[in-house]
Design a protein around this nucleic acid. Structure first.
Lengths: 208, 208
DNA sequence: TGTACATCAGTGAACGCGCGTTCACTGATGTAC
DNA sequence: TGTACATCAGTGAACGCGCGTTCACTGATGTAC
């Protein structure tokens, strides 16, 4: 797993250690889980001394924040791509599926994304009211598909409900005990679709 | 916070140290959060030496399991009470509200309940297929309210969907940023109701 | 009722460990003249 | 083009800490006779 290059190939100055540290953290995260994500382990994985990260991050929390931030950016990009690839009424479902697939592919990163925010008692980046947060993308998509933008409370409730549903499914889908359901339905994607359908959150999915 | 009794009042033999340790763990958990839950801290909180817990638990994981187990029992009891108190079509909603209220009142315990299971790569106690798990209570209630018990896949999907929705809301409701929504709706309970309503999971809530 | 003894449930000191962080340092790089 | 020097980005040793766990121990309890 270690990315440490052989002694002769890596110069004394790294070039972009900040980047390398965040990459190393992500590698560690998915290989060993969130509890293995110590500053020292990240430095080790990146092939530098334990003190090196302090030239790029104030402390461990700042490194974790950077990892979480990158996670939210990737998730936002994947949701945006999914939306672009699926014009029409299915766009909201596409967003939900993209969200859950991201969590399936990066379960430990996904946890860090929320935990880093909880530690700071803040909303995570992807849920903030920035114009390009994932949360706002969901809200905007709802408006594009007919939600009334002037019914502010209702709109926000619908967005929260969709977000909660996706988050709940993202965490539950990790349990191996649901494998049999996925198989019976013909695959993971169908399982996600079906659960979203039962939630009735995504208008494209329930024809009634 | 410490429960350690004064020297003269506590006998050498504790009486029920196992119980006291689980209680101490829960106290610590809600006061300091999941990351503060070390074996030593629990022993300290209970007023005994760091080695004492080993007479009652094989290791730290076993203590955490006991804490999680108790959490699931309390949650199950509260859901059962809520169901009993609300005959009729609102029973499913009552279960959902009870679930979310438990998570609101015991956020750190709630996390431990899932994390302890994830560490063992198991379904948590409350989600197992025991006759009296919380998960089965939800499924049974769905049947009582008209779900077709012979449509097994559909029934399980509906239960999973409800469970995911409740879990998602339970975790999101902890963010302070939703306070304004709760206020606008006239309280936390109304907020929970409204989100469940938007999910369309709970038949009693959506009249359409 | 009294005594011997096994068992139980604590103590407290110690172990090795990995952690976050600091420090004085040094090698590499870039800029001024 | 060459040299002096400031700055940058690393090293590696060290710090103190809290952790999980083990160990030999001892005080308290219960039971047999």
């Amino acid at each position: 797993m270690s990315e440490a290059k052989s002694a002769e190939s890596r110069p004394y100055h790294h070039g972009d250690l900040r980047r390398a540290l965040v990459d190393a953290a992500r590698r560690l995260l998915e290989a060993e889980g969130p509890s293995a994500l110590s500053l020292r382990a990240v430095a080790r994985e990146a092939g530098v001394s334990p003190a090196a990260p302090y030239h790029h991050f104030k402390d461990k929390a700042e490194l974790l924040d950077a990892v979480a931030q990158e996670g939210w950016e990737i998730l936002g990009q994947q949701m945006s791509d999914a939306k672009a690839a699926d014009q029409g009424l299915h766009q909201l479902t596409a967003l939900g599926i993209a969200y859950v697939c991201f969590a399936r592919d990066n379960p430990a990163l996904y946890r860090v994304m929320y935990d880093a925010a909880r530690d700071k008692e803040m909303l995570p980046a992807g849920m903030q009211d920035n114009k390009d947060s994932a949360y706002c993308m969901v809200r905007d998509t709802m408006i594009e598909h007919g939600a009334d933008p002037t019914a502010e409370v209702d709109l926000e409730l619908a967005t929260v409900a969709a977000w909660c549903g996706a988050h709940g499914l993202a965490e539950m889908a990790g349990f191996k005990q649901f494998e049999h359901l996925k198989e019976q339905l013909g695959g993971e994607r169908a399982f996600f679709d079906a659960v979203f359908g039962h939630m009735g959150l995504f208008p494209s999915m329930h024809g009634h």
